[in-house]
Simulated assay, not measured.
Amino acid sequence: MTMAGGGDELKLLGMWASPFALRAKLALSFKGLSYDYVEEDLKNKSELLLSSNPVHKKVPVLIHNGKPICESQVIVQYIDEVFPDAGVTLLPADPHDRAVARFWASYIDEKLLGAWIPVFRGKTEEEKAEGVKQTFAVAETLEGALSECSKGKPFFGGDTVGYVDVVLGGFVAWVHAIEEVFGLNQFDAAKTPLLAAWLERFDELDAGKEVMPDIGRLVELEKMRQAQAQAANRSTARP
């Protein structure tokens, strides 16, 4: 890691299992920037978090020289803009390419996460099946996005990771955990070969490995959440 430089102080407020906090960690890691990390207990949020993000009261929050920046996509863009000479450049230089990258980043947050919710929390098999169907539909759309953005190169950003890689990369650990818990291989090589190859390449990036959460720990967390949800459903179903 390199220092932010110029006396810059960076502090990241996050939670270990949050894919959104992971995005910020990935951006900082790919840029080679050092920072202080503060793990938040989301059931007992710190005064620093509440005062730094009074609107949403969520992680991640990046604090740069005492000034907070909120929302994961905003944080990633901020890091790239404020530290242009550090590590890799995440946002494309061309305005149209930059707009396209932002479009697909927004699509990932809206559609992929939206498809996951019924897979995780669906109360009926029909709801869960619809979530699986939507997840594969999103993956097929992202397959086309990868082809468009990469122009035949390894990553959405081309030869190196870019903005969309970081945004989608925040979900990578959960992609693996979901496969283990639910048996759902979202980036199936038979259906989405480009995404499957992208996932393998992303998994091997040293800067990514440095900040990825433990998959087994995520699996245990989700199994616990599933058990709690089932218990709650049984409780509400009682006459």
Score class of each variant (00 low, 15 high):
1 M>W: 06
2 T>M: 13
3 M>W: 13
4 A>Y: 05
7 G>E: 09
8 D>L: 00
11 K>G: 02
13 L>Q: 01
13 L>A: 01
15 M>H: 13
21 A>E: 06
24 A>V: 09
25 K>D: 06
28 L>H: 00
29 S>F: 02
30 F>G: 00
30 F>D: 02
31 K>T: 01
31 K>D: 07
34 S>M: 14
36 D>I: 08
38 V>S: 05
40 E>W: 03
41 D>L: 06
41 D>M: 07
42 L>I: 02
44 N>S: 15
44 N>C: 08
47 E>R: 11
49 L>K: 01
49 L>A: 12
53 N>D: 06
56 H>M: 11
59 V>T: 05
70 C>F: 05
72 S>C: 06
72 S>T: 03
76 V>T: 08
77 Q>L: 09
78 Y>E: 07
80 D>K: 06
81 E>P: 01
82 V>G: 00
83 F>A: 05
84 P>N: 13
85 D>Q: 09
86 A>T: 02
88 V>W: 01
89 T>A: 15
93 A>I: 15
95 P>W: 15
98 R>I: 01
104 W>S: 12
107 Y>T: 10
108 I>L: 12
108 I>G: 01
111 K>M: 14
112 L>C: 04
115 A>M: 10
117 I>Y: 12
118 P>W: 04
119 V>P: 09
122 G>E: 11
126 E>W: 12
128 K>P: 03
129 A>S: 15
130 E>Y: 01
132 V>E: 15
133 K>S: 13
134 Q>P: 06
134 Q>F: 07
140 E>L: 10
141 T>N: 12
142 L>R: 02
143 E>Y: 03
144 G>A: 06
146 L>D: 10
148 E>Y: 15
152 G>A: 07
153 K>I: 11
153 K>C: 10
154 P>D: 11
156 F>A: 03
158 G>W: 04
160 T>H: 11
160 T>D: 15
161 V>D: 04
162 G>D: 07
163 Y>A: 01
164 V>M: 10
166 V>M: 04
166 V>K: 00
168 L>G: 10
169 G>S: 09
170 G>P: 02
172 V>H: 04
173 A>K: 00
180 E>G: 02
185 N>C: 12
185 N>R: 10
185 N>T: 15
188 D>H: 11
189 A>T: 09
190 A>N: 14
191 K>A: 14
193 P>F: 10
195 L>Y: 06
195 L>N: 04
196 A>C: 08
202 F>N: 07
204 E>L: 12
205 L>S: 03
206 D>L: 13
208 G>C: 11
209 K>W: 02
211 V>E: 00
211 V>P: 00
215 I>D: 07
217 R>H: 13
218 L>F: 04
220 E>H: 02
220 E>A: 14
225 R>A: 14
235 S>M: 15
236 T>Y: 15
237 A>C: 13
238 R>K: 15
238 R>D: 10
239 P>F: 14
